[in-house]
């Protein structure tokens, strides 16, 4: 159990800087999700906390101690890898016990702790098997077990669910959340999946090209994105962006962002904007209507499945409430 503090953390590979200075204070027991597209530096950030990458500049504190120069094993962390990284020649029991064995724990204590972790994760029947005899979901559990058996101060997850099928992913997501709540261990979790980020996080870090664009609670980030990137990345389908002038707001330097779920299809006479329907995807519970406005931008409207589905090529009006407007400068920053 520990706090984690990153202070102006930077990383360069050769001359290219890939992390441009990240600051965050993570409270004890908090679940932080680092989310962003591939190549944004989120894994590198996590690996710096783990000690698997050197820190170019800045400081990493775990439990109040500066750990920049410490080996991973001395940082009191445990990590779950994307491909699980189970030792292929060892049984599940040995995989989970390996860290404890190196730490020089007694046989009895190791057996007891592995049994307890196996019980929590419901992998007791597999303890004698080799990793290759397990399914993806079971391997995932073993990887989790290897992490929790050591009772670390911080859990680090590097896209742990991305190799699972969709159904299992949802299930494991819930289990990870529950487990983290029960154990109360500070966690950092890297993912590119915004649904995982929204559901798991106490706070999330939205990374964009090596910068933490926004740090905040999921719903706060969703409701109040600070940059064009965050507005476009969080939320599905993504936020629509229009030149602000096309709806007579702001100047040429500004973009208007409106989420698809805040748009309504209204009669062409009392609307803010006219558009032509390109196609409509009726998904049952909801319908996604893709339209194109006169200046050429595509605008997606998300409406209840019970509402009438417009015809392709139909001319419709788009309306929205003024308080849902988000205005951005074209350089990406939020105006209001």
């Amino acid at each position: 159990m520990a706090t984690v503090t990153l202070e102006n953390l930077k990383k360069s590979f050769g001359r290219t800087e890939v992390i441009h200075g990240v600051n965050i204070d993570i409270a004890d027991g908090e679940f932080i999700v680092i989310v962003g597209p591939s190549g944004c530096g989120k894994s590198t950030l996590l690996r710096m906390v783990a000690g698997l990458e050197t820190v170019t500049s800045g400081k990493v504190f775990i439990g109040g101690h500066l750990v920049n120069e410490r080996e991973p094993m001395d940082r009191d962390i445990a990590m779950v890898f994307q491909n699980y990284a189970l030792y292929p020649h060892m049984s599940v029991f040995d995989n989970m016990a390996y860290g404890l064995k190196i730490a020089g724990r007694s046989k009895a204590e190791i057996a007891e702790r592995v049994a307890a972790a196996a019980h929590v994760l419901q992998i007791e029947p597999f303890l004698d098997r080799k990793p290759r005899e397990l399914s993806g979901g079971q391997r995932q559990r073993v990887a989790m077990g290897r992490a929790i058996v050591r009772k670390p101060a911080v859990f680090l997850f590097d896209e742990p669910l991305s190799n699972l099928d969709a159904k299992l992913r949802v299930q494991m997501r819930l289990e990870i959340k529950q487990l983290q709540r029960e154990l109360g261990v500070t966690s950092l979790y890297v993912t590119h999946d915004q649904v995982e980020a929204m559901t798991l996080a106490d706070r999330m870090i939205v990374m964009n090209e090596g910068r933490a664009d926004q740090i905040g609670a999921p719903l706060e980030v969703y409701a109040n994105p600070q940059t064009v990137f965050v507005a476009g990345f969080i939320g599905s389908p993504p936020t629509n962006f229009l030149p602000a002038l096309s709806v007579s707001r702001g100047s040429t330097e500004e973009l208007l962002g409106i989420r698809p779920e805040h748009l309504r299809i209204v009669g062409p006479d009392k609307c803010e904007l006219r558009a032509r329907v390109v196609n409509a995807e009726a998904l049952g519970a909801e319908t996604l209507v893709h339209t194109r406005i006169h200046s050429g931008e595509y605008v997606t409207v998300r409406q209840e499945g019970s509402r009438p589905v417009p015809e392709e090529g139909e001319e419709v009006g788009l309306g929205w409430a003024k308080e849902n407007e988000m205005l951005f400068f074209t350089n990406g920053a939020r105006r209001y």
């Binding site: 080996e71 991973p72 094993m73 962390i77 990590m79 890898f81 390996y98 860290g99 290897r146």
Partner: peptide
Amino acid sequence: EAARVDGA
């Protein structure tokens, strides 16, 4: 890396 984290 896993071995390093495990302390090997």
